[in-house]
Write a protein that binds this DNA or RNA. Structure first.
Lengths: 219, 219
DNA sequence: AAAAAACTTTACACAAACTTTACAAAGATA
DNA sequence: TATCTTTGTAAAGTTTGTGTAAAGTTTTTT
C-alpha cells in the first residue's frame, strides 16, 4: 500500500488524520516537524502543514523540491489560511494540491487518491489505432516506429488524441495549442494538420476534416 | 535538515566552517573540544579535527566508536598532517572519510553529502550507454575513463541520468540544479549542456535537445 | 593579493519551426 | 452548370530557439 508522510505540528490533528488515513489503507508516518523527513526513503506522497513552528511548510516544500530524491514526490499542502496568496505561493513552489482547514477527511483521502493516480509512474500513454503517444517522453510512434514531431505538431496531436472522436473547432485548437492570445487568422492550423497527416503516414487519414467546423481524430 | 557536530579547537576555523555549513543548509553545532559531545542525541554526522588540545581527535573517535548511541554516526576527520600514517590510523579506527587542511569548503560539503547519502543506504549507481555515475563517490566515467566535472555539470548530469528518456524542461532543470529561487533568464543551462556534451565526448550526443521544451538523455 | 576555476551573461549566427501568400482543389448552394 | 465557400498545399517569407564564442563576474584556491 502507498506510504504517506504527514507533517503536522498539532498532535491531535496529526493523530486523527493519521488514524483516518490508516483506516483508508495507507501506511502513514506522522511527523511533528520537517526534521527527519529526508532521513528515510521518499514516501509515495507527503501531506504538509503550511503552518509549522520552526521551518514553515513552504520552506520544507522548497527543500523537498530541491532534493534529488524527493523532488518527484507529490505534496499536498494543508493550510488554515485560505487566502489566495498562500495558495498561489504554495502551488508555484511545486505543491501538487492544497486543502484548507477545516477539511473533511474524506475530501483529503479522495484528493490523495487522485494525486497518487496522477503521479503513479504509470506512464502517460495515449493510443489510437497504431498511433502511440508517451507524454512523459514526448515521444510518438506509429506502428512502433518513432515519428519525430515539432513542438506545435506534437501539441496538436496530443490535443487530438486526448479527445478522440470529438470534433475540435479551429478556435478551440488555436486556443489550446497556440494560446488564447493568438491573433493571425490564416491557414496555419491547416498547415500543421497537413504536416501531421504527412508524418503519421498511413495513420494520417485518421485525422478527419469536419467541413465548416474543424478536425477530429477517429470515429 | 541534517544535524552536524563540528569539533574543532581553533575558534576562527570553527566559525568559518560552521557558517559555511549552515549556508549549505545543515544544522550545525560547533564544539571546541570533545567535551559535551555525548551529552546530546547523536547528530547525523560528526566532523572531527584530529589535532585537539586535550583528548586528541583519534581518542574521541575511539570513544565515538565505543559508544552505543554514537557508533553508527559517520565521522569525517579533519587534519593538518597529510602523512599517510595519520590517514590510515584514522581510517582504521573507523573514520568514514578524512580531509586535509587546508581544504575547500565545497569539497567538505560534498563529502558530507556523500557520506550522509551513503549512511542513509540510498543505492546510487546510475548508468546509461557507456556513461556511469557513482553518486556516492561523485564520480563519472565514460567507457571506463574518468571524466572530471564541475559541481553544476555533475548535478545536471545526475538529474539527466535519474530521468533517462524523459524530457526535462529548462524550468525543471533550473529548479532542481540551480534551486527554485534562481532568477536570471539566460543561456546558462544551454552553456552547461554544452560543457557536458563536450566532456562526455562521443557520449555527449546522447543528450538530446527537445526544441521548445528542454533536454533529455537517451531514447 | 594574485591566480585559477567555475559560473553567468551578452551577442550574434544559423537552422528549425512557424506563418503567410497565393492559388488549386473540393464541396456546397442555387 | 455556374458560383460561392471552405480546405489543401507548395513555396516564399518571417520569427523563434538553440549553439557557441568571448567577455564579464563571482567563488575558490594558491
Amino acid at each position: 500500500m502507498a506510504k504517506i508522510v504527514l507533517v503536522e505540528d498539532d498532535d491531535d490533528i496529526r493523530e486523527i488524520v493519521a488514524y483516518a488515513l490508516q483506516g483508508a489503507g495507507f501506511e502513514v508516518l506522522g511527523l511533528p516537524s520537517g526534521e527527519g523527513l529526508f532521513a528515510t526513503p521518499p514516501p509515495d506522497l507527503i501531506v504538509l502543514d503550511i503552518m509549522l513552528p520552526e521551518d514553515d511548510g513552504l520552506t520544507i516544500l522548497k527543500k523537498i523540491r530541491q532534493n534529488q530524491h524527493f523532488n518527484n514526490t507529490p505534496v499536498i499542502m494543508l493550510t488554515a489560511k485560505s487566502s489566495e496568496y498562500d495558495k498561489v505561493k504554495g502551488l508555484d513552489l511545486g505543491a501538487d494540491d492544497y486543502i484548507t482547514k477545516p477539511f473533511g477527511v474524506m475530501e483529503l483521502i479522495s484528493r490523495i487518491k487522485a494525486l497518487l493516480r496522477r503521479a503513479s509512474n504509470v506512464p502517460d500513454l495515449l493510443t489510437h489505432e497504431k498511433i502511440a503517444l508517451d507524454h512523459n517522453k514526448r515521444k510518438v510512434t506509429v506502428d512502433n516506429n518513432a515519428v519525430s514531431l515539432t513542438f506545435k505538431e506534437y501539441e496538436l496531436l496530443h490535443y487530438l488524441m486526448s479527445n478522440v472522436g470529438l470534433v475540435l473547432s479551429r478556435d478551440k485548437i488555436i486556443g489550446v495549442v497556440w494560446g488564447y492570445d493568438f491573433e493571425g487568422e490564416s491557414r496555419t492550423v491547416d498547415m500543421h494538420i497537413k504536416f501531421l497527416r504527412q508524418k503519421l503516414g498511413m495513420c494520417g487519414e485518421h485525422i478527419k476534416t469536419v467541413r465548416g467546423v474543424g478536425y477530429k481524430l477517429g470515429d
